[in-house]
Computed example of a mutant assay.
Amino acid sequence: MQIQINTGSGIHGGEDLNRWAETEIASVLERFSDQLTRVEAHLTDQNGEKGGPEDKQCVLEARPVGQHPVAATHRAGSVEEAVRGAADSMAHLLDSKFGRLHHAKGGETIRHMPAPD
């Protein structure tokens, strides 16, 4: 799984931030690594110099093998919180997506149960 970090003009942190974000995303999504080709993170500052309670945003786009991309967004007061929140949201989304692919709805049906004696 390849992880790419993209930062907007209002996000500062350079290579250290990119390395931290990459490590954080990889650790949260590690269990899906064989099912994803790439994860892109887009970090932006929504209000620029003005600031605000939830002005940092992280949008994660994951590309599952052989399927359409999926995205998760999280806004927070800091870049770190936004990255963690988006990674957690993506993990829940992927759990749901891959769970539906591999499990029948509702599990066993009555047609597959043995007849009573």
Rank of each mutant, 00 (worst) to 15 (best):
Q2T: 09
I3Y: 09
I3V: 15
Q4A: 12
T7Y: 04
G8P: 06
S9W: 06
G10T: 01
H12L: 05
H12C: 00
H12F: 06
H12D: 08
G13H: 08
G14C: 10
D16M: 11
D16P: 11
D16H: 15
N18P: 00
N18C: 12
N18A: 13
R19E: 12
R19H: 11
W20D: 01
W20Y: 02
W20I: 05
A21Y: 01
E22T: 13
E22G: 05
E24L: 01
E24N: 00
E24T: 08
A26R: 06
A26W: 00
S27E: 13
S27I: 07
V28Y: 02
V28H: 05
R31S: 11
F32D: 05
F32W: 14
S33G: 05
S33N: 11
D34N: 13
D34Y: 09
Q35K: 13
T37V: 13
T37W: 05
R38H: 13
R38S: 09
V39H: 01
V39A: 03
A41W: 00
H42E: 09
H42C: 01
L43E: 02
L43D: 00
T44K: 04
T44G: 04
D45P: 04
Q46S: 08
N47E: 11
N47A: 14
N47W: 01
G48H: 04
K50V: 07
G51R: 09
G52Q: 05
P53Q: 11
P53D: 14
E54C: 04
E54F: 05
D55T: 07
K56G: 01
K56A: 01
K56I: 03
Q57T: 13
Q57S: 14
C58V: 10
C58I: 06
C58T: 07
V59M: 13
L60M: 09
L60Y: 02
E61I: 14
A62C: 05
R63D: 02
P64Q: 10
P64I: 10
P64L: 09
V65H: 12
Q67A: 14
Q67I: 05
H68V: 09
H68S: 13
P69K: 02
P69T: 08
V70Q: 09
A72N: 02
T73A: 07
H74C: 15
H74P: 04
R75C: 07
A76N: 06
S78E: 11
E80K: 03
E81M: 13
E81D: 15
A82Q: 04
A82H: 04
V83E: 00
A86W: 00
A86F: 02
A87T: 07
D88N: 14
S89T: 10
M90V: 02
M90R: 03
L93P: 04
L93M: 12
L94I: 07
K97L: 15
F98V: 08
R100P: 02
L101Q: 15
H103G: 12
H103P: 08
G106N: 09
T109R: 13
T109D: 07
R111T: 09
M113C: 08
M113P: 00
P114Y: 06
A115D: 10
A115P: 06
D117A: 15
D117S: 14
